[in-house]
């Protein structure tokens, strides 16, 4: 188990280094860091002095190493646009994004798995057909249109829910949460649904496809031949085997939560890091872009690590060595 985790950790570090390299190249070579720091009147000599002081004339690897050391200490430079440290910007907006993403991921997982299992087990029922049709519409509707549609119906026409922002937040010192106030929770509803819808349909279709595949296997036929109850076959034998591929692919789909969050935050003016990134792209605020990239890479690596460990726990073929004879 430990060896397995260490191996995965090693791979994660390689991935992080690759992401850091891309983000460093962006940070260093897209736009001119000096031009954005000095005033209009600075002379060439002044600029050159600053360049030297910032170490921009050092060899590539020295600069890259410095970049990594800074990043490890949470130092990602200063935003060109807002002139505040990037790390502070990200920290102040992170809670909003995490609360939104967690809420919608939970909704998506629960509804997605339940609906997927249901449609796989009742392939011919009209309800399942309805869910499938709905899911296809879900996949075909761009997230931003879902958001606009929900705003139009529930905020503009019915006026039940707010159309933008996080509502009131409670400051817990290092974390500003919207979970504790009524307006906070009400503001969360529409964005969370918007964000979860795409994931939900994706997970549902995946669970359905995998479950149908598993139900065709010989061991399911053999389980039926042993006279096991429908419940034991469907929910113990079939579901557990379905989860093995679902875990992997669901982990890989994490990326779409990140983009989904970005779009949702934009539509609902949600003050998270997705909308921060988007406004930085518009004005080429490179330090923020670079830091966001590293953040995304980091989340990706962590989630993949969790997925691998889950996978390891579920599948004994990874856990217990090959066909060891004797003992």
């Amino acid at each position: 188990m430990l060896a397995f985790i260490f191996k995965r950790l090693g791979q994660s570090i390689i991935v992080m280094l690759a992401v850091a390299l891309i983000s460093f190249i962006m940070f260093r070579y897209v736009g001119d860091p000096v031009a954005s720091m000095v005033s209009q009147e600075a002379t060439i000599a002044d600029q050159e002095l600053l360049r030297e002081r910032l170490g921009l004339n050092d060899p590539f690897y020295v600069q890259f190493f410095r970049f990594i050391m800074n990043a490890l200490q949470g130092n990602f430079g200063i935003s060109y646009r807002l002139q505040t440290p990037v790390a502070d910007l990200i920290m102040s907006r992170l809670p909003a994004t995490i609360e939104l993403a967690l809420t919608s991921a939970t909704i998506a997982l629960i509804v997605g798995i339940v609906a997927g299992v249901f449609t796989a087990l009742n392939r011919k029922s009209p309800i399942a057909a309805g869910i499938m049709a709905f899911s296809l519409i879900g996949v075909s509707l761009p997230t931003f249109l879902i958001g606009i549609g929900l705003i139009y119906i529930f905020a503009v026409e019915l006026q039940w829910l707010p159309s933008f922002g996080r509502g009131q937040v409670v400051d817990l010192g290092w974390w500003r949460t919207g979970f504790l106030t009524e307006t906070g929770l009400r503001s969360l509803i529409l964005p969370a649904i918007t964000l979860s819808l795409f994931q939900m349909t994706l997970i549902m279709r995946l669970v359905r496809a995998e479950m149908l595949e598993v139900l065709r296997q010989d061991y399911i036929k053999f389980a039926r031949a042993r006279g096991l109850s429908k419940r034991a076959i469907n929910f113990s034998h079939a579901l557990k085997n379905t989860m093995v591929p679902v875990i992997t692919i669901a982990g890989l789909q994490l990326g779409s939560i990140i983009t989904g969050a970005l779009i949702t935050e934009t539509v609902f003016q949600w003050p998270g890091i997705g909308s921060l990134f988007l406004s930085s792209v518009a004005v080429v605020d490179v330090p923020v872009m670079a830091a966001y990239l590293i953040f995304v890479g980091f989340v990706f690596v962590i989630v993949n690590l969790i997925v691998d460990i889950l996978y390891y726990v579920v599948d004994p073929r990874l856990r217990v060595g090959g066909s060891s004879k004797g003992h």
Binding site: V15, A18, M26, V30, G31, G251, L252, L254, G255, S256, I258, T259, L262, I263, F277, L278, S280, V281, V284, V286, M289, L293, V296, F300, N304
Partner: peptide, 23 residues
């Protein structure tokens, strides 16, 4: 490909856009 798959298309497109704008 694995890394690419987990970095969603929109995000990559946005980055490329940002870079293209800078260059």
């Amino acid at each position: 490909a694995d890394i690419q798959l987990s970095f969603p298309s929109i995000l990559i497109a946005l980055l490329i856009f940002g870079i293209a704008r800078g260059i």
